[in-house]
């Protein structure tokens, strides 16, 4: 699957050329927006990496993992991903910080690393999306939106574990 990204980039560039778009100028414009976006989220990332590094160093994550280890083991759930699974619907930056922490501790190609990767790729910051979309039109009664969205996040956790077991067999 390593060719997906370059193949897609190539298709887009050729499509742009055919449509007579000044591809390089447009590319530069987009890249500038990318830098600006990063500039705006950098303080958030810094703040959350700080909090999560502290949490790891304090031994709190380890003791939480030890606490849930028996239940996690029983369910075949890698205990290392629990903090990330909990933070994922709430904060995108926070779960990225936890994801990189997990890569450092377990490695991206470990079982927990793969499950965390799949989970990060298949879920979103649920609360943020709901707050933003309903907030902009001031709708307060959101009915079953949150329930359906959180059940989807839970499904992503379960299916991440199952698919990693099937695909990588560990």
């Amino acid at each position: 699957m390593e060719f997906v990204m370059p193949a897609f980039a190539c298709t887009v560039v050729i499509f742009g050329l055919v449509r007579r778009v000044p591809v390089f100028d447009v590319f530069l414009k987009g890249a500038k927006e990318g830098i600006q976006l990063l500039y705006s989220i950098a303080p958030t990332i810094m703040g959350l990496v700080f909090a999560i590094d502290l949490l790891r160093a304090s031994g709190a994550v380890d003791s939480l993992c030890k606490l849930i280890e028996p239940a996690a083991e029983y369910l075949g759930f890698p205990k290392e991903i629990v903090p990330m699974a909990l933070l994922r619907p709430i904060s995108g930056g926070g779960s990225t910080a936890l994801l990189t922490a997990l890569y450092q501790d377990c490695g991206p190609d470990s079982f927990a690393g793969r499950v965390a990767s799949v989970l990060a790729g298949s879920s979103e910051t649920t609360f943020y999306a709901i707050a933003m979309y309903y907030g902009c039109i001031k709708v307060k009664k959101i009915r079953h939106t949150l329930f359906a969205a959180l059940m989807a996040d839970f499904t992503a956790v379960v299916v991440s574990i199952i698919t990693v077991r099937i695909f990588f067999g560990n």
């Binding site: 590319f27 987009g30 890249a31």
Partner: peptide, 11 residues
């Protein structure tokens, strides 16, 4: 992020 924003701007 920069590279991909650039490509996607073309899209």
């Amino acid at each position: 992020m920069c590279l991909w924003s650039g490509i996607m701007k073309i899209a």
